[in-house]
Design a binder for these strands. Structure first.
Lengths: 177, 177
DNA sequence: AATTTATGTCAGCCATGTTGACATATTTTG
DNA sequence: CAAAATATGTCAACATGGCTGACATAAATT
C-alpha cells in the first residue's frame, strides 16, 4: 500500500521463468520461428494485394487439386463466407479455376491454373529455403525428431489431414476415384 | 479449348509434391502444429473477451516486467496505436499496471499484477503440457535438435530477442539497473 | 413432388492491424 | 531559460479477414 494509485494492484517485478514449470523456451521459439517463417510469403503476397488467407487457399488447392469447396472449408476450418471473398479474388485473378463436379454437378472442384501453381511455388520456395538452411548441419535422425515433434503437436483427431496430403501418400490423388 | 469459360485457364490436375524441390512436409507440419498450439490459449482468452493480441502483450510483460511501452513495441513489432487498444483493456481489467519510469518520468514501465501473472500462467500451461506430451519419448538430444532448428528458423537479426529473455539469461532482469 | 445438399451471396458485426495528425509531459540541448 | 527532441497517449479513418444470419439457386435424393 505504499503505492499511489486508487486501484492499487501491486506490480509483480519478477519474470516468469522456466522454474514456474512452464516450457517457456519452446513456447517462445515456436512464436518467433513461426512469425519469421510466415514473413517470407507475406512479403510476396503484399505485392499481389493478397494476404495470408489467399496463401492458405492457394496452397491447399495446389496440394489437393480437384477438392471441393466443402472439403477446402474442412481443411481451413473457416466459414464459407470467409472463404468466398478470397476464393473469388483468386478466381478473378486467374490463379484458380472451378470445374463442375463430374459425379455431382452441384459441387465445384477447385484446380490451380499454371499461374496459380507458379505463385504457390513462389510462396513455398523461400519457406523451404529457410527450412533447408535451418537443417543445414542436422543429422537425418534430427530431422526425423523435428517432424515427429511437430506432428505430435497437432491434435490427434486432425493428424489425418496431414497423412492425407499427397507428399505423404506417394502421389495418391486426394479423391476417391 | 474444350473448356467453357472465356478466360479458359487450364486446370492443373496434379498436386505439388516434395518432388518439386519444396520441403512440403515441414512447411505443412509447422502450419498445423502452430494452429493447434495457439488454439489452447485462444479458447481461454475467448472467455475473457480477449484475443491473441492480448496474449502476446500479457506474455511479454510477464517475461520482462518493467519494460517500457517503446520496448514492448519493439518486441511485438506493431504500432503504438495497435498496442494502445489491447494494453488499455489489460490495464482496465487489472492485469497490467503502469508505473512512471524512475529515471525518465515520461516512460511507463509495465508490470503484471497478480491477476495478470495468473492469467499468463494459465495461458502458458496448456501450451507447455502440449509440448511436454509431444516430447514424451524424446531423448534429450532430440529436444536439443528441435530447439536448435526453431532458433535457426528465426531471422538472425532477431535472435537476440530470444537470448535476452530471462529464462535464457538465468534470472537477469531485462533492464540495465 | 418434396426435401436435402452444395454452393453462392448479401448485409452487418468484430478484432486487430495500418497511417496520419496532433496533444501533453518531460528531458535534453543550445 | 528557451527550444527542440523524446515518450507516450489519443483521435479518426481505413483494410483485412474472421464471424453470424438470412436467403437464393441448382441439383441430388427421398
Amino acid at each position: 500500500m505504499s503505492k499511489h494509485n486508487g486501484a492499487s494492484a501491486e506490480p509483480i517485478r519478477t519474470a516468469i521463468t522456466n522454474d514456474d514449470g512452464i516450457d517457456l523456451s519452446i513456447i517462445e521459439l515456436l512464436f518467433f520461428a513461426y512469425r519469421d517463417f510466415t514473413s517470407d510469403p507475406d512479403h510476396i503476397l503484399a505485392g499481389y494485394g493478397f494476404g495470408r488467407a489467399h496463401h492458405r487457399v492457394l496452397h491447399f488447392v495446389n496440394r489437393m487439386p480437384g477438392l471441393t469447396v466443402a472439403e477446402l472449408l474442412d481443411v481451413l476450418q473457416i466459414t464459407k463466407q470467409s472463404l468466398a471473398r478470397v476464393l473469388k479474388q483468386l478466381i478473378d485473378t486467374g490463379h484458380i479455376v472451378q470445374l463442375q463436379g463430374p459425379r455431382d454437378r452441384r459441387q465445384r472442384e477447385l484446380y490451380p491454373t499454371a499461374k496459380g501453381r507458379e505463385l504457390a511455388l513462389a510462396l513455398a520456395r523461400p519457406q523451404s529455403r529457410r527450412i533447408h538452411a535451418a537443417l543445414e548441419n542436422a543429422q537425418p535422425a534430427e530431422r526425423q525428431g523435428i517432424e515427429s515433434f511437430l506432428k505430435a503437436m497437432v491434435n490427434p483427431e486432425w493428424r489425418v489431414q496431414i497423412d492425407n496430403l499427397p507428399a505423404n501418400t506417394r502421389g495418391k490423388s486426394h479423391g476417391d476415384e
